[in-house]
């Protein structure tokens, strides 16, 4: 199957690139024409193509401009430099990971409580589901500002937003997962007169692993979004969100795009790491590859 998918994916990615290049020329042309007119010089089509891909602040930078910017701000800058993208990515990543870990742990704990206590289930679960329909990211700036006012700043407020966001998918997924065992499997445990703890560790927990990883994939992606949005409101000086904001203030489109691509790459890496962990754990548990 893997062999059958590589080519189509490559074709799709290549056509996205092609569309991007065409769009670059098309979107940057009006401004470039203005430049030509002011300078009063003649131009050819090839001039236009070359120049639209080499503007300082293009409407849409060409992929290679973004790639060069990323290269310059990652490999060629010292990691400690404020202009290094690695530095900014690390700031965002650390908040993401901290928030994701706390959120996942809390989510699992609440799911266990919900599955084992009917009162918790019936009183809390509707709210957990309802809270998913609420645009929680809207609260992000307030949390940041409020915690700043109390003297908490830096990593923790952002991590709290990530915690909050990653918490819900894990609760919902794990409640489903811990309830996934079929009635006959539970009945079997009952005939062994297994204790609640035994049923949990021998049946519910292993059974819920696919659900846990599926929700962790969602959770880690949304954690990153939380950390980035958490960097927006305070005019934070560091982090990928801060780069986005600064870029949009000063019209530095290449900087915006490079921050965006870096964030996308980070998300892709995080999600695939969870995916790898998923494969590893399931294989250890004896699942068929």
């Amino acid at each position: 199957m893997a062999g059958g998918r590589t080519l189509p994916i490559l074709v799709v990615v290549a056509s996205i690139m092609a569309v991007w290049y065409v769009a670059t020329v098309w979107l940057n042309t009006p401004w470039q024409l203005g430049v030509y007119e002011r300078e009063g010089r003649a131009w050819t089509a090839s001039d236009l193509v070359v120049d639209t891909m080499a503007q300082e602040r293009p409407v849409l930078p060409a992929p290679h401009q973004v790639a060069i910017e990323i290269w310059q701000t990652t490999v060629e800058k010292k990691i400690t430099s404020k202009r290094s993208l690695v530095f900014h990515a690390w700031i965002t990543l650390s908040a993401t990971l901290l928030g994701f870990l706390i959120g996942t742990a809390l989510g699992i704990a609440l799911a266990v409580a919900i599955v084992h206590n009917r009162a918790t289930d019936r009183s809390v679960m509707p709210w957990v589901i309802a809270s998913q329909t609420i645009p929680i990211l809207a609260i992000a700036p307030m949390i940041i500002v409020v915690l700043n006012a109390v003297g908490l700043s830096g990593l923790l407020p952002k991590a709290l937003i990530s915690t909050y966001l990653s918490f819900f998918p894990v609760v919902v997924g794990m409640v489903k997962g811990l309830r996934a065992p079929e009635a006959i499997q539970l009945d079997l445990m009952r005939t062994y007169s297994a204790s609640t703890a035994q049923v949990f560790w021998k049946l519910r927990w292993p059974n819920s692993m696919p659900y846990l990883f599926a929700s962790m994939k969602v959770a880690v992606a949304i954690s990153l979004v939380g950390a980035i949005v958490g960097e927006l409101p305070t005019g934070a000086v560091a982090g990928l969100g801060a780069r986005l904001l600064a870029g949009s203030y000063y019209g530095q489109t290449i900087q915006i795009w490079s921050a965006l691509i870096t964030a996308a790459a980070l998300a892709a890496v995080l999600v695939s790491l969870v995916g790898l962990a998923n494969t590893y754990v399931l294989r250890r548990m004896g699942a068929r590859p």
């Binding site: 080519l7 994916i9 990615v13 992606a221 949005v229 986005l244 915006i256 921050a259 965006l260 996308a264």
Partner: peptide, 22 residues
């Protein structure tokens, strides 16, 4: 489909919200 599905799944997981300034 085979090409677009994995790409679409990947993009769904990206912080798309970052395109807001653009």
């Amino acid at each position: 489909q085979r090409g677009l599905l994995p790409v679409g799944n990947l993009i769904s997981a990206l912080p798309i919200i970052g395109i807001a300034p653009i």
